[in-house]
Design a protein around this nucleic acid. Structure first.
Length: 263
DNA sequence: TTGCATGTTCCGGA
DNA sequence: GTCCGGAACATGCA
């Protein structure tokens, strides 16, 4: 379930192992993960090139290399692995960059997401689907402005990559729980105080998660209990509720996160 | 066996 | 134009 913190972790991982190395060969094990190019096209663009320093926007990893930009999206089950060239391939390895000194493997069980090739910032932006500002870069004013021009329920807004980029289902539940805001709460009905609490919770959850390279299962957080069959709120002990919000399974505390009023 | 989960996109309807 | 729900995609797991 790669969300912003996981992809930030992949960025560090890429920077540590693969950046600066020359591509000797590209091995495409499953061409269906190449979304806007072919094995030949990818090989032509990368072979003999040195991989640049990776950047991240939302849940996307961007790697400049030569004239091209390599874009990775990890869907729900994607990851990167740095291995020796001798290590046995994993059945879910889809694309392998054979580099000097080792291999970088794009592994993805469920095959959502994929690998794109772009040319220039503009094209990369289009490939990413014209995302909103990165959630980690947003300051409070920017966040409040986004809320001003958005209606509907708050959880789908947090997860809308076109509004702000990087937050997925699990992060949004954690942020809403920490801010004590019900996921179905209508944005326009939020008080100034609640808006500020949302921003603070978002910043806190993102920073703590990025520090660990993933969303932590942390005592006192919703993440510590949400996978249980009958999870209790870490704050008040009330049995948590589950339901569909914005097409996803949300988890919230009916006592701490009151008021499902809409609009 | 069936359904569920996850991120994104696309589609139809309000 | 906005917002919402639902389907589709792929695959392993309960």
């Amino acid at each position: 379930m790669p969300e912003l913190p996981d992809v930030e972790g992949f960025r560090h991982y890429f920077a540590r192992h693969a950046a600066g190395r020359r591509v000797e060969k590209v091995v495409v094990l499953d061409g269906s993960l190449l979304r806007n190019t072919t094995a030949q096209g990818l090989g032509r663009a990368l072979k003999g090139r040195r991989l640049g320093r990776p950047a991240r926007h939302g849940k996307w990893l961007l790697v400049p290399t030569g004239e091209a930009m390599l874009l990775f999206h990890f869907g729900m089950t994607g990851e990167l692995r740095w291995t020796s060239k001798l290590e046995r391939r994993h059945p879910h390895d889809r694309v392998v960059l054979d580099l000097e000194g080792g291999e970088l493997r794009y592994r993805n069980m469920r095959k959502f997401g994929g690998v794109w090739l772009g040319h220039g910032e503009r094209e990369a932006w289009e490939i990413m689907g014209r995302p909103g500002p990165d959630a980690l870069e947003l300051d409070q004013n920017g966040f409040l402005e986004l809320l001003e021009r958005r209606r509907g329920a708050v959880k789908p807004a947090l997860m809308d990559q076109k509004l702000l980029a990087g937050i997925g289902n699990e992060l949004s539940d954690e942020i809403l729980w920490q801010a004590r805001v019900h996921p179905r709460r209508g944005i326009s009905s939020l008080s100034g105080r609640q808006r500020s609490r949302l921003f603070e919770a978002m910043r806190h959850v993102l920073r703590e998660s990025v520090r660990r390279g993933r969303i932590p299962r942390r005592r006192g957080w919703l993440t510590a209990v949400r996978a249980e069959r009958e999870p209790a709120c870490p704050r008040c002990g009330t049995l948590l509720e589950r339901g569909r919000v914005g097409g996803r399974t949300a988890c919230w505390c009916p006592r701490c996160q009151r008021s499902a009023r809409r609009r």
